[in-house]
């Protein structure tokens, strides 16, 4: 109220710095020429070269990308259909199903991993890509569902009514009106789900098969047993791609707001952007 204190600003800056330092260190060390990672041997790209020559890692990368694509797209279909259909259907137990479907991101990850492990072996699902895909889809659905649902709430009902008034069928309304309006929200949700899948360790540890490796699993094992400098390079690449995905997602989320609300004010737009971070 009186003289503006500098303390809050300093504090915010200090904590932010602490948050960034570990990440920056990883990035800096990925360009370290030296084999011994605690010694600085000058700038070099050799670990990136080695990384791309490592067939194990390349395979894990392919697996990770495939897995993230499959699970986020499955989640997109299931989640979008559900978000659109739920408010209209009279099917019994929809409140319960809605709640249960979000459980995978509410309960501690370790429990989710554990239940999947025991359940998959009960129903004799072969461990590997299939189990990974099912498990990942389960925690991807809530992201798509919640973002699309939130967007649907913001869409003026009169659009659909106007379309129907002009002779559109339920199907036309979905295809011509609803889908275009929620597309940014779907995209945003899918990208987030993709990023989550690409990053997941805990659940993957439990449900992966003997011969199926993903990038985070690879890093996890190495962190436990001993790191090679290649991991620095790998981490840096993962960091960059996650950032690109998240920023793109936030951009879509923002777009999804401005599409339907003409009087877009910056607060609201950032509100949606903010919420993306919070779902995690």
């Amino acid at each position: 109220m009186k003289k503006k204190s500098k303390l809050p600003g300093l504090y915010l800056g200090f904590i932010l710095a602490l948050m960034y330092i570990p990440i920056l260190l990883v990035i800096i060390y990925s360009f370290n020429e030296s084999r011994i990672s605690s010694v600085w041997g000058g700038w070099s790209l050799r670990w990136y070269r080695d990384l791309f020559r490592d067939r194990d890692i390349m395979e894990a990368m392919t697996n990770s990308l495939f897995l993230a694509t499959v699970s986020s797209l499955s989640a997109a279909v299931i989640g979008t259909l559900a978000a659109v259909g739920m408010p209209k259907t009279n099917l019994r137990g929809k409140g319960i199903i809605e709640y249960l479907s979000t459980l995978p991101i509410m309960i501690p990850e370790i429990i989710l991993g554990m239940v999947f492990l025991v359940y998959f072996s009960l129903i004799k699902l072969p461990f590997g890509m299939i189990t990974l895909a099912v498990a990942h889809t389960s925690f991807c659905i809530p992201y798509v569902y919640m973002l699309v649902k939130a967007r649907l709430v913001g869409i003026d009902k009169s659009y659909a009514e106007a379309a129907k008034d002009l002779g559109a069928t339920e199907w036309n309304v979905f295809w011509d009106i609803t889908l275009p309006l929620i597309l940014p929200a779907i995209t945003s949700g899918v990208l987030l789900a993709f990023a989550m899948s690409l990053d997941d360790v805990v659940i993957s540890v439990f449900v992966t098969g003997v011969n199926t490796n993903t990038l985070p699993l690879k890093i996890y094992t190495q962190l436990k047993t001993g790191v090679t400098p290649k991991i620095n390079a790998l981490c840096t690449l993962m960091f960059v791609s996650t950032m690109l995905i998240v920023i793109t997602s936030a951009w879509f989320a923002r777009k999804s707001v401005s599409r339907t609300e003409r009087r877009i004010n910056s607060e609201e737009a950032s509100g949606i952007g903010d919420s993306i971070g919070l779902v995690r």
Binding site: L24, Y29, A195, T242
Partner: peptide, 18 residues
Amino acid sequence: LMIPFWTSSLIRLYGWII
């Protein structure tokens, strides 16, 4: 805040190891 928050927890952990 979003950037460290969305960074893989493994990467962040690795930073602390360093």
